[in-house]
Design a protein around this nucleic acid. Structure first.
Length: 991
RNA sequence: GCUGAAGUGGUGGAAUUGGUAGACACGUUGGACUUAAAAUCCAAUGUCCAUUAGGACGUACGGGUUCAAGUCCCGUCUUCAGUACCA
């Protein structure tokens, strides 16, 4: 009986689906375990072999946990709002919902055939109105909340209003916009409703604010930084400028400190936590206010080095800073405006990354030093970013490298305030060694003392205070796109109003075109039925807008991260229509025990999700304030691209009329890899051969033309991507397939290796369609089976690492499965016997149990595949047929290769699914060794080994080793200076 | 630029607390079986020197600590990822 993997896999996939083998219950006697994958965006290209990597790892873990007796929740769904579907809609007119549905169907089919143990009854789709109803609901909760610094949590906005009504805003300790004017209770009551709403908006956890965006006028849309290349749009190459726009923002900054502290509670990788810490960017320092000479204006800055305040020799504002136009003197106006225009064209990332180009402009204005009252010139410079801190810095060139470079470049004086330090060549940035000088009351102090004193003095004169700053900026939550969650928001008199929760979901309206409107409004501006009727509580036609009872709806949609910031909670109770999940379900599952996904989400998804979780926790909606206990990042599988090497010379024909360069008979010439490399390095012989081949071939094809070569230098050697499916495991190109690939390759001519094959070059690159290196899991599954695919993906290397895919290697794991099969089944059927296991059988089994269990718990899946191979090799050598060891082996293997394990388990006479079997118990007694093969080293170099009893004493080992003739041979008469004996490990003889 | 990660044979990778570098596979070479091919099985395979015995070198590069370093320390280089509207 042969190993018919296709039949076996289909059979068990059907069995699992029919029996709902992996459906999780929200109540159980068993302990719970929640294994989650970052859900995929269903792209039109379908899955390639890189995508399932993390899913296979989490599936192994989920199946392992079931064997361990846990009630496992292992769901899957789709992050189905996003740009690609919208882009496709713009190009083709296809509704994104239609393409998304098709793409999901493809994904589902592909996922199913890999044999994942997902509980599909809990599937979620972020673009499903029944799902985004709750995303909208969370948005409303955020709108109706403010952050109370005294209680250190989010509270309902009504508590804030009642404070305003009784005390005004002076006593409120809230996270809010800067510079909110103070008002009394009486004033509050006197405000119009609109004025009150405007004030409250400055406190809400989601609010409208002006934010800077990358605006592309030609495309009529906002672009992400990575959609901009060299200052122009990636698509179309249109100019992009920085522009202010009113958008929804999320007050994530309110949670900065808790997001930072919470990292200590979760078991995530250190590198990921470090990224988040860095992103949050806590810095302790001071806020300092500089007065501007001859003006009422003040410049607020934040500095981490208030100790260096006497070193300030200029101020730098971001070119976008509000004060710039006000401060600039008429003489400097032209220069400043030109500079602002130039800056607007640069992306933020450019400005951060490029430290070599120093640019700026003098505004002509002067600030006043808070203590010396000396004038300080005010500059603008694009190294200061508007969105960071206050968008202005006090520049201390002696203590900051960028300030130093700026001062040098513009010949601004550099004041040295450090004792005993030479700053003629570079700034001095070492806080630890700082001794302040030339600084009035700070003289002689170290960094710590001077910082305290400077803050004290600033507070005394009312021009500063100690402050903790976070780099974390509030997150922009509006997108000028179609394919996202609509906001449950309408506008009355320009003020946003929430639609009551019972009327949700507000579903996406139909539009004619998915592009921005001609007036530059977002795509929802094209909708004709997009107004809110406050009496009927439904979406009605725009024509009915009367601004009395019928009002316009919000035209922006929510960003991609909205739906993904809480989906892990929805899986706990995904079909609930009354609540986003029931209390019982939330309290039972609580949080994710293991979360697997890509490290590229480190600061986006993973930070926003933590933010929402903490908010929902404050509101009492979820029981824990961190949603994932443990998180593992899987690496990426890269493609192994294949290259053919095209060569040609410029050709000259003496008989023009008889020869046409566009002649369909005109061939392409390719040279094999090793010869290409010789040619490239200028090998004369190789070039001569290629040239002769080239000429003689052409003259053969065009006998009537007398073809000659042009200039010697005209040799063209071009590596070209070729589809990896045309190449075998030995890098040989299937020339027939290649010729049939494209019409212009049909007549190709090849210079081959000396053995007659054409060998391609290889290079590891990201897997992508354009590089022809995409490998489809469907093909792998049909050729080798899902179990082989699963094993091979794990076998490739450590989960977290980036590693190249090479289909050729899969024969290794496939052969392993065939060998495994043969251990159980031969031509006559099942050959497993009731024979007692031998000592060797038990040793192999228990060695394998130990290693595999350790590996799974350490997420080292690649090494357990090797372990299985070793076990099967050993059992084969031992001619083992004993059920006593072969049955538990199947349970060990089943998380990795579930189909073959189920099949053999079934053939052994078990009627229940192998997923219900208990994981085998490790028994150390089978591994006890009585002797050790000691490596004997001389000066650290291993020369030979000696078999010695495990219980031999140190002295006896030394004596036995010294008595060995090989030892004497190695020593050649010398007396060793020292003999190191580490019992059970090694012997090292020094001398 | 900043932050994070990685660098070991022809290839993917293994190596417990510092203790036999290259497990397990792929590829390559040779052999068995076969009319032949496929499949399967066996053997060799880090590089260099040597007929063998054996030896030298070897974990990106340069130093250091140690009886002993892929592993620890210092410095350098290279590659990849993130960098706030790709998902």
């Amino acid at each position: 009986m042969i190993y018919d993997f296709n039949k076996i896999e289909e059979k068990w996939q059907k069995y699992w689906a029919d029996n709902q083998t992996f459906k999780a219950e929200n109540q159980s006697e068993k302990p719970k375990y929640y294994v989650l994958d970052m859900f995929p965006y269903p792209s039109g290209a379908g899955l390639h072999v890189g995508h399932p990597l993390g899913y296979i790892a989490s599936d192994i873990y989920a199946r392992y946990k079931r064997h361990q007796g846990f009630n496992v929740l292992h769901p899957q769904g789709y992050d189905s709002f996003g740009l690609p579907a919208e882009q496709y809609a713009i190009q083709t007119g296809q509704h994104p919902a239609v393409t998304t549905k098709e793409n999901i169907a493809t994904y589902r089919r592909q996922l199913d055939q890999i044999g994942f143990s997902f509980d599909w009854s809990r599937e979620v789709r972020t673009s499903d109105p029944q799902y985004y109803k709750w995303t909208q609901w969370i948005f409303i909760q955020l709108f109706n909340s403010w952050y109370n610094n005294d209680t250190n949590k989010a509270e309902d906005i009504s508590t804030l209003i009642s404070i305003f009504e009784t005390e005004g805003n002076a006593t409120v300790n809230a996270v809010c916009d800067d510079n909110i004017a103070a008002f009394t209770a009486a004033e509050w009551k006197g405000y119009t409703s609109k004025e009150q709403q405007a004030i409250l908006l400055q406190y809400r956890l989601t609010y409208l604010a002006e934010t800077e965006v990358n605006w592309c006028p030609a495309l009529g849309t906002v672009l992400a930084n990575d959609e901009i290349v060299n200052g122009v749009s990636e698509r179309g190459g249109h100019p992009v400028i920085r522009k202010k726009m009113t958008q929804w923002s999320m007050r994530i900054s309110a949670y900065a400190e808790r997001l930072l502290q919470g990292l200590d509670k979760v078991d995530w990788t250190d590198s990921l936590k470090e990224s988040q810490r860095n992103w949050i960017g806590k810095s302790v320092g001071a806020a300092v206010t500089f007065k501007v000479k001859d003006s009422d204006a003040v410049i607020d800055v934040f500095t981490t080095r208030p100790d260096t305040i006497f070193g300030v020799s200029f101020m730098t504002l971001a070119p976008e800073h509000d004060l710039v136009s006000q401060l600039t003197t008429p003489e400097q106006k032209a220069e400043v405006e030109a500079y602002i225009l130039a800056t607007a064209k640069r992306s933020e990332r450019d400005r951060m990354a490029d430290v070599k180009t120093i640019s700026g402009a003098f505004t002509g204005a002067y600030a006043e030093h808070p203590f010396t009252k000396e004038p300080i010139p005010v500059w603008i410079g694009d190294y200061v970013l508007a969105g960071y801190g206050t968008g202005a810095v006090m520049s201390v060139p002696c203590g900051d490298e960028r300030d130093y470079a700026f001062a040098k470049h513009f010949n601004i004086p550099i004041i040295n305030i450090f004792e005993g330090v030479d700053i003629s060549e570079a700034a001095f940035t070492d806080k630890e060694k700082t001794v302040i000088g030339n600084s009035d009351f700070l003289n002689g102090m170290n960094y710590k003392k001077a910082t305290k004193r400077a803050i004290f003095e600033l507070e005394k004169i009312g021009q500063g205070e100690g402050k903790t700053n976070y780099r974390l900026r509030d997150a922009v939550f509006s997108r000028q796109r179609y394919w996202g969650e609509p906001f449950p928001v309408y506008y009355v008199d320009g003020m946003p109003q929430m639609i009551a929760a019972e009327h949700l979901p507000i579903t996406l309206p139909e539009v004619e075109k998915y592009l921005p409107t001609e007036t530059g409004e977002p795509p929802l501006g094209n909708a004709t039925v997009w107004a809110w009727d406050t009496t009927k509580n439904e979406v009605v036609s725009n024509d009915l807008i009367d601004n009395e009872t019928i009002h316009p709806l919000e035209l922006n949609t929510m960003p991609g991260w909205a739906g993904s910031s809480w989906y892990f909670n929805r899986y706990m109770d995904s079909t609930n229509t009354e609540e986003f999940a029931s209390k019982e379900a939330l309290n039972y599952w609580k949080d994710v025990d293991l979360y697997i996904g890509g490290s590229e989400h480190a600061t986006g998804h993973l930070l926003y999700s933590r933010f929402w979780q903490k908010f929902l926790f404050d509101k009492g909606v979820v029981p824990v304030d961190e949603f994932a206990k443990k998180l593992i990042n899987q690496g990426m599988i890269l493609g192994t691209s294949a290259f053919v090497y095209r060569f040609s010379w410029m050709i000259v024909s003496n008989t023009d009329e008889a020869f046409d360069i566009l002649d369909p008979k005109m061939p392409s010439f390719f040279i094999t890899k090793s010869k290409f490399e010789k040619m490239k390095s200028g090998d004369v012989e190789e070039i001569k051969n290629a040239k002769e081949f080239f000429l003689s071939t052409l003259n053969e094809i065009f006998p009537d033309s007398d073809i000659k070569l042009g200039d010697e230098i005209s040799l063209q050697l071009v590596p070209t991507h070729v589809d990896v499916s045309f190449v075998n495991s030995s890098d040989e190109l299937d020339i027939e397939q290649f010729k049939n690939w494209r019409t212009d390759y049909t007549n190709s001519k090849f210079i081959n290796e000396d053995d007659g094959t054409y060998k391609v070059g290889r290079e590891v690159e990201k897997m992508s369609k354009s590089k022809y290196n995409v490998v489809n899991p469907d093909d792998i599954v049909s050729d080798y089976g899902a179990d082989s695919l699963r094993l091979y993906e794990m076998f490739l290397g450590p989960l977290e690492q980036y590693k190249p895919w090479n289909t050729a290697g899969i024969t290794g794991v496939h052969n392993f499965l065939k060998k495994l099969w043969k251990l159980y089944v031969d031509d006559n059927g099942l050959k497993v016997s009731e024979a007692a296991a031998t000592k060797d059988n038990l040793k192999t089994l228990h060695k394998t149990i130990k290693k595999v269990q350790e590996d799974i718990e350490n997420f080292s899946f690649n090494t357990s595949v090797s372990t299985f191979m070793i076990a099967v090799n050993e059992f084969t050598t031992q001619k083992c047929t004993s059920k006593e060891v072969l049955e538990p082996l199947l349970v060990l293997l089943s998380p990795y290769a579930p189909h073959i394990a189920e099949e053999l388990w079934n053939q052994l006479g078990n009627s229940a699914s192998i997923s219900t079997a208990a994981f085998p118990e490790f028994d150390a007694s089978h591994l006890v060794e009585s002797s050790k093969n000691y490596p004997i080293s001389f000066n650290g170099k291993m020369r030979f080994t000696m078999e010695l009893p495990m219980d031999m004493s140190k002295d006896d080992i030394e004596a036995a080793v010294m008595a060995n003739e090989k030892t004497q041979e190695q020593l050649a008469g010398r007396t060793p200076k020292k003999v190191i004996v580490v019992p059970g490990k090694i012997v090292n003889i020094v001398g």
